[in-house]
Design a protein around this nucleic acid. Structure first.
Lengths: 347, 347
DNA sequence: ATCCTTCGTGTAATCGATTCCACGAGGAGG
DNA sequence: CCTCCTCGTGGAATCGATTACACGAAGGAT
């Protein structure tokens, strides 16, 4: 593969001139520039990004460590991150942690070794030493979706509180009183927050959230199935199951079907994270939709700000409720979110 | 960030010794080795992969240019590719072409500039000059899923012919005679092959595949919707719609629902590419499942063979039919694929 | 005692770019 | 006519690793 030296020889100039011509440096004569361009053309020369990175100490690459690519929510997030990054002249390397801290750590290490310019993380756990060190050492970094409390890194995420309140209002209006949740891992912020938001929203109606109605899941379909079976085996099973992500909702649907239960007649189902498939499941699933594209975009922008040495602010975007049929009576019209209940602060 | 020089200074040895100690070179004394290791520890040193790549001329990175990440089939493929690559000590950089030739070309160029060791491509079109040049120039390369005829590159893919025959047998047994297909882009091999396989299978039953029953899609949900609407507007609409991928099947389902049609009572639906969600759609969708994980694995292995300078053989794995309810009468049992019709060569 | 290996180590070249510094030519100003 | 800038250019250092080559010490064989 042709190097800059070959181009210099072909054009009859020095490598310095070639470099300058190719990088739009002002002080290159028109003749030199055209000869360089011609040489580049005939040799099919492409600059070696590795060598350039070594010299300039920047790779124009962003790392994205994601909890689980197979989750459509994260797939879409990854896609929007790549899109925005490309628009800004960056490439992105995606690392899939599969909800495993060891894999997450592996990817963080690999990305850091490659000297990426910045790191976007949706942490699976409290954060490995390697990640925490990198954050402290000043590696430009932004958390997306999930974050680690107590670490000085901007967070780009969506706030589901309002939407969860709307959901509970919807559920309550439909007459449901015994509501259960399949929670995400307690090590993740989203795992905890969604349970808290649910509990608060229930409290506004004087409804309890007994421990038996909090199932411990891990954001994977299998756990949704297991937890749902546990709920059904209770002396008094819930009337509604709210899954804290779409994969666990899929698992719940599996379990319900296996028991021959009808949704929503026998039991209602709702999910956090909306995906195109929820329109076509039997029945269509009521879900809380995050502004995924906007999250990805905002995260990249914040990270690039950080890389440029500026602040890079945290961003919180609201999620919204999408009512379908899995909780009861079909929505009368393409209606706005049901009127919120009386809002009062946590008791 | 600490460099090898800092480590050498800290350990009181030369950089050569540090490098040797870290790379397991035999002729390093035990004392030198322990001092180096200690220095690495106290400095938190990590070798700079960029510098190493420049010197050794290998990045231990694979490029994967995929047609569309949002398609669950490709997401799974990407995942298995990354898994196998990691097991073999490689990282992978994924480029999402979104079925757009220009984006595909962008990613191929970027990856080549980064001097990846090998390239895995599922081409969106006939191949840009850049890609064809790279192939000719000897860049280790392997096609996955789709390929470009006439280019000397191994292909790892799955053969759907048998499964399509099984599908048509199933459909014929159910009494369906007017079968239509939503095809993929003619520029892709999978786009063409699936139509051919379908036509051949129909021919075995003496059934025609009129042009009106071949809708031109682009592997995206929107086109599935449009083509299906076209089918329904025909004077004699088909009894079965077979979508050549899962996204177009989703679009077809949209269109069917919008018209208030029941599946399979009013019209039957089948899809190429199986995904977990098909179990839970209304009704569950009969689909042709590819051995996606195995494809990803085989592709990486073939590519690594090529990188090592060995041949790297093409691999073709069979797909299989998964019968659900979208074509009529629920399967009686978890039964094996229905007995094949008389096999005869194309008329 | 001398010579030849073997072993451990260091010096320096190298990969392909970018960029500081120096230098010569040519034009403007005195 | 001389001096001083400006402009375009080239030489060479540099980024952080790997590795060919040289070299001195130690040990074995004769």
């Amino acid at each position: 593969m042709a190097s800059i030296k070959d181009v210099a020889a072909e054009a009859g100039v020095s490598v310095a001139t070639v470099s300058r011509a190719l990088n739009g440096h002002p002080s290159v004569s028109a003749t030199a520039r055209t000869r360089v361009l011609a040489a580049v053309e005939t040799l099919g020369y492409r600059p070696n990004a590795v060598a350039r990175s070594l010299r300039t100490d920047q790779t124009r690459t962003l790392g994205l460590v994601i909890s689980d690519v197979m989750n459509p929510y994260f797939t879409e997030l990854a896609r929007s991150v790549e899109e925005e990054a490309r628009a800004l002249g960056y490439s992105v390397i995606i690392g899939n942690a599969d909800e495993r801290p060891d894999l997450q750590d592996h990817h963080v290490t690999t990305l850091l070794d490659r000297r990426i310019d910045g790191l976007l993380v949706s942490p699976t756990d409290g954060g490995s030493p390697r990640m925490l060190d990198a954050a402290r050492a000043g590696t430009p970094m932004v958390f997306v979706d999930r974050w680690i409390p107590g670490v000085d890194v901007p967070v780009v995420r969506s706030d589901g509180r309002g939407a969860v309140r709307d959901l509970v209002a919807h559920l309550h209006g439909l007459g449901h009183r015994r509501l259960a949740i399949i929670a995400g891992p307690a090590a993740t912020t989203t795992g905890r927050e969604r349970v808290d938001a649910f509990r608060e929203a229930l409290a506004a109606y004087g409804l309890p959230l007994p421990d038996a109605y909090i199932g411990q899941g891990d954001f994977q379909a299998g756990s949704g199935r297991r937890v749902t079976e546990g709920f059904l085996d209770l002396p008094e099973p819930p009337e509604v199951v709210f899954a804290a992500d779409n994969l666990m909702a899929l698992g719940a649907l599996d379990a319900l079907r296996a028991r021959g239960l009808r949704v929503p007649e026998d039991i209602a189902l709702a999910a956090f994270d909306d995906i195109p498939w929820f329109v076509h499941t039997d029945p269509p699933v009521t879900a809380i939709a995050q502004p995924t594209r906007d999250l990805g975009r905002a995260a990249v922008r914040a990270l690039v700000e950080r890389i440029a040495g500026r602040t890079g602010e945290s961003v919180t975007l609201p999620a919204r409720l999408v009512v379908r049929r899995s909780c009861g009576e079909p929505p009368s019209a393409p209606h706005p979110p049901s009127p919120s209940p009386v809002r009062r602060s946590t008791p």
